[in-house]
Amino acid sequence: MPALVSKSLRDHRRSLVRWTIGIGAFFALYLSFYPNISQNQDLYGDAALEKFPEAMRDLMGGLTGFTTGTGYLHGVVYQLFGPMLFVVCAAVLGNQAIARPEESGTLELTVTLPIDRRRLVFERFAALALGLLGVAAATFLLAWGLSVATDMGVAFDRILAAHTGVFLLGLLFGALSLAVGAAAGRRGPAMAVVGVVAVGGYIVETMGKNVDAVSWLRWVSPFHYYLDGKPLYQGFPGGDYLVLAGAAAVLLVVAILAFDRRDIGV
């Protein structure tokens, strides 16, 4: 493994373990409620959830089929909280690549090593992707295990499809935070851009289904390419996932070009 990749992974080791435990704990807590909910059709059935305003149901991803395994898993884990946790985790990792070491001053020695600047960004991104993949793999196994333990009856490949989408979405936001950090050299702007794109993108995608004024914006929302294909219901939306991966690759190129032509630490 290239020196910078293994070094970054070593540096991120603790934070990766903490994120895995945190996301895992969230999954475990929410999925443990499922047996109770599936047995209370009156309280959580479609008819009961109809009473919520439509816009709110849209924001929560529709809130249908909450008492079925797929509906519940989608509603509490894969609609909003799961993706957002991965987005934040990836954005933090993206900031660790350039912006944070530049702010603290540790990047100074790194850029004077005999490593091309473009390779430096690429290797830091590779570490981000591998670290995120590790968190995704561990939490996927946990989600699948819990779904089996609570008799959700959701197929292995559907959970894999949804989890892959969450990973790709995270990777995209990680690349976004890396790109802004590589261009600006500061964490603040990177976090602001990620926050605006994530929250704005989510609202546009969910509300846009019923609000014509913003529906045309859905295609620029990263969440569109994860949620629209309903991976937990319909399996891998291949084309959409390629868009997510492609956008991450484009952002990586932007990060590399921006970092290569810039003064460091001024």
Binding site: R10, R14, G105, T106, E108, L109, T112, L113, P114
Partner: peptide
């Protein structure tokens, strides 16, 4: 040319070392 930096030893004026490493 990054290769030339391998032939240089550099001590920054404001050396930042941090973390548990």
């Amino acid at each position: 040319d990054p290769r030339v930096r391998g032939r240089i030893g550099y001590l920054p004026g404001e050396l930042a070392l941090e973390g548990r490493e």
